[in-house]
Simulated scan of single mutants.
Amino acid sequence: MRPYVICHMISSLDGGLHLSRWTASPDGKLGDWTALYQSCHEKLAGDAWMVGRVTMAEMSKGEPHPPREHGKVDRPSHFANRQAGNYAIAVDTSGKLHFARNEIDGDHIVVLLGSDVPDSHLAELVADGISYIVSAQAQPDMHAMLDTLERELGIKRLLLEGGAGINGSLLAEGLVDEISLLIAPALDGRAASQSFVEFGTEGLAGKIQLALKSCETLDQGVIHLRYAVTSL
């Protein structure tokens, strides 16, 4: 049984992800909107939050430092901390992320990896006190990995927080139960600007449907929309 997954994001009116590229508003500033997003994150009360490799790289701040020597490493999983209050989960198919610590703002790090990741990288994660799950496939089997997160770490409620690619992939696979979207009073407007959900050239038409759960006006000109997601 997998966790209940909420895709929790903030975007401009035209779906833009990068706050630094948004237009200004007299209703609020970037810092105000970020604070509202974090406040909603807390209210959604997840046991864990999950992001893709690019998003996690902005927080991990590490350089490669594999051990000079290492013994046999555990596959398919290693759990350095089963009692954490919250977990920070990164999807890193090829093992490109490196970490300066084993937590982010107190949340224990768990890395989800593809089967081709080398043992030297797993040994680095073990030495850093970081948990990991290795998929049986080169591309992580997210169905199986979410099941493992629930079974092994007791994660019941997970917040999926970008980027666009991982959001789109999990939506397409029927692994998202709800969307929580904050819309700020701003525009991006650039051609080919990345939206908060992307799924290749085919998109998500015919794969899911949304039903409005609530619409709330917050401070600083922000609207909070929540949708139930159903797979087709």
Rank of each mutant, 00 (worst) to 15 (best):
N167G: 07
I130Y: 03
R190I: 11
G168E: 11
I89P: 06
D147I: 03
A100E: 12
I133E: 09
V134K: 14
G85M: 02
L171E: 03
R82Q: 05
L187V: 11
V117W: 02
L175Q: 07
V176K: 07
N102R: 14
R157G: 02
Q137V: 08
S169P: 07
L181S: 13
G129E: 15
L181P: 09
G189A: 12
T148I: 09
L187Y: 15
G95C: 03
I183N: 09
H108C: 09
R101D: 01
A138E: 12
Q139R: 14
A164V: 01
Q137Y: 08
V111P: 06
I109K: 07
I109Y: 05
H108K: 15
P140A: 09
I133K: 06
D128N: 14
A136I: 03
H108F: 14
L187K: 07
D147A: 10
S180W: 07
M142Y: 00
K96G: 01
S94H: 09
H143F: 03
H98L: 00
L171D: 12
D105A: 14
I130H: 11
A100K: 15
D177H: 11
R151L: 07
G114W: 02
L181I: 04
G162A: 12
G162W: 10
R82E: 05
I109G: 01
V176A: 05
E103P: 11
M145N: 07
L182E: 14
E173M: 04
S115Q: 10
L125S: 02
A144F: 08
D188W: 14
R157I: 01
L149V: 01
L125R: 00
M145A: 11
E161W: 03
A184F: 05
I130P: 07
L112F: 10
D147M: 04
S94N: 12
V111L: 15
H143V: 04
S131N: 11
F99C: 12
S180R: 02
P118V: 08
A184E: 01
L175Y: 05
V134A: 06
L97P: 05
T93Q: 03
I133N: 11
L159H: 04
V111I: 08
P118Y: 02
S131Q: 14
A84R: 00
A123Q: 05
G129S: 13
D105M: 15
A88C: 03
E152Y: 13
A123F: 10
A127C: 13
D188N: 14
V126R: 14
D119W: 09
K156H: 08
L149S: 10
D107A: 12
L171F: 15
G114A: 06
N86G: 05
D147R: 12
N102T: 14
